Amino acid sequence: MISSLVQNQYAMVRIIVFLLWSLLLCETSFGKINHTFEPIDASFYTSNPNVIDSKLSVYRISRGKYGLNGFIDIKQDLSNDYMLELYVLRSVSGNDRYIPTAIRMPPKNLEYYMNKVYKRIIMTTFSKCAPNSPQFQTEFKAPLTKRRFDLNKCLTDTTNFPYVRSGFYKVGMRFIKPYNITWEITAKTVTTDHF
């Protein structure tokens, strides 16, 4: 009985050591993954251009460097009643069909999206190339006030991107309530691990 108790404790110690080493590995390698995100195509659809209008296009900045140009025009204040979802589709070669990835955000309200997705992933990019885009330090609270912001040679900052394999991706952000409004960007992503 005592030997089985000792074996159980030994097994627990091994599990704890394994978990600690895993945490240490994650902590030391976090931020050492480098992504390049090269937009290939950008599209926009709205069921009501009186609420939001937009036009995005891919722009060649220099050899091998592409960014986004265009505008986003929010024509009225957006309340927290607006529901958004985010999806990411992947293709190995870019010519075949795109399949869903595990990266997605089910429909959530505007405040959730602005605090969890926009602030973490998009806001840094827009701060460098889109004057008048929403910028906030603490927690975002609705409404998102009406504004127009122009995107001028926006290069995507991938610092806070989740890990993705190299390939072709379609990243979509869609308002699903009360209107159908969708942005979709197709991009080639190359991932370099630095472990």
Rank of each mutant, 00 (worst) to 15 (best):
S91V: 05
P143V: 00
D53S: 15
Y87T: 10
K108M: 11
D77W: 14
T186A: 14
S93W: 04
Y45M: 08
Y45W: 01
I181P: 02
Q76L: 08
P143Y: 06
F161V: 03
N69T: 01
L110R: 00
N34K: 13
K119C: 15
A130D: 02
L68H: 09
N180Q: 10
K32C: 13
P100A: 04
C154T: 05
M83H: 08
Q9D: 13
F126C: 09
C26H: 09
T125H: 09
M1E: 04
N50V: 13
I40T: 08
K141I: 02
M1V: 11
V51Q: 04
L25R: 11
F168W: 08
L155W: 05
T192V: 14
Y10L: 15
I122F: 13
L78N: 07
F149G: 11
N50E: 12
V6H: 11
G167K: 01
L110V: 06
P49G: 04
Y45E: 12
L68F: 10
A42H: 05
C26Y: 13
R14L: 13
R97V: 14
S127A: 13
P106H: 07
Y45Q: 04
N80V: 02
Y82G: 05
F161A: 07
D77I: 04
V17W: 02
V17G: 00
T158D: 07
F175N: 06
M114W: 09
K170E: 07
S22L: 11
I2F: 04
V88K: 01
P143C: 09
V88F: 10
N34H: 13
L144H: 00
I181A: 00
P107V: 07
F195K: 05
L84M: 12
N80G: 05
L151T: 05
N109A: 13
T138S: 15
